[in-house]
Amino acid sequence: MKGVTTYIYRDFIRWIRYRVGVVSALVLPAAWLLFVGCALPVTFTGNYLDFITPGILVMTILTAGIASGSLLMFDKILGYLNKFLAMPVPRESILVGKILFISIRGLLQATIILVIAVLIGATLMTPLQYGLVYLILFLFGVFISSFSTTVALYLEEHDSFAAFSAMVTMPLFFTSSALMPYDAMPGWLSAIAHVNPLSFAIDAIRDVGAGSIPAVPILLLLIVTAVVVVCAGYVFRKVTI
């Protein structure tokens, strides 16, 4: 546990010292919210901001989570990883530290979005609802960062990983239910959107916003996340022995 918190502390300081990274992480989601949420002429819903906010939240967690792999990759390339692996600290704490750091950082970004959304006209939710939103985002963050870490452990160079993350992020976002409801999509898109993991998290957050407690989606998300975490741990063990 000491190892995990120390690794998280290290990544946090490194992130904060790297000011451009902080600004970009906070400004980008806000920009999405303002430009897409307020500018698109939409007819299918009354308050488009309420509709789009879950999409932007999940997209932010997605981009933040994919970066998890590149963080580990740089540790590997620059020699830090070998140094840490030669220490008696349980090796898995390196992996857990990375996943938690990325997920917590994602939640910070999510908070900014939630605040701005309310400021520009989204409906204020109850504390319980916000709690559920955070829970869903956290699970989704762990899911995505474990996934990207696993991929990073397999790939050799940072360029391959950058290509991978570019290939994954945008298509996933545009084929999800982030921008429009299923019945406003063409048939083929709706079919893809239904199996897209992003839609899954987005729909769950929308359910929360609509006043219900999406117990089944949360449970499913929990199971899928657990599976991916176990996979990440397995691969990590395999490549570091």
């Binding site: 000491k2 120390t6 502390y9 290290r10 830090y80 070998n82 140094k83």
Partner: peptide, 26 residues
């Protein structure tokens, strides 16, 4: 183990770098 690469975190102070190792070793 001290690898070839000079792996110290450039954006951390010397003391912070060292403190991380002291904490990791408990």
């Amino acid at each position: 183990y001290v690898p070839q690469e000079m792996a110290v975190d450039p954006n951390l102070t010397g003391r912070e770098n060292l403190l991380i190792f002291a904490r990791l070793y408990g």
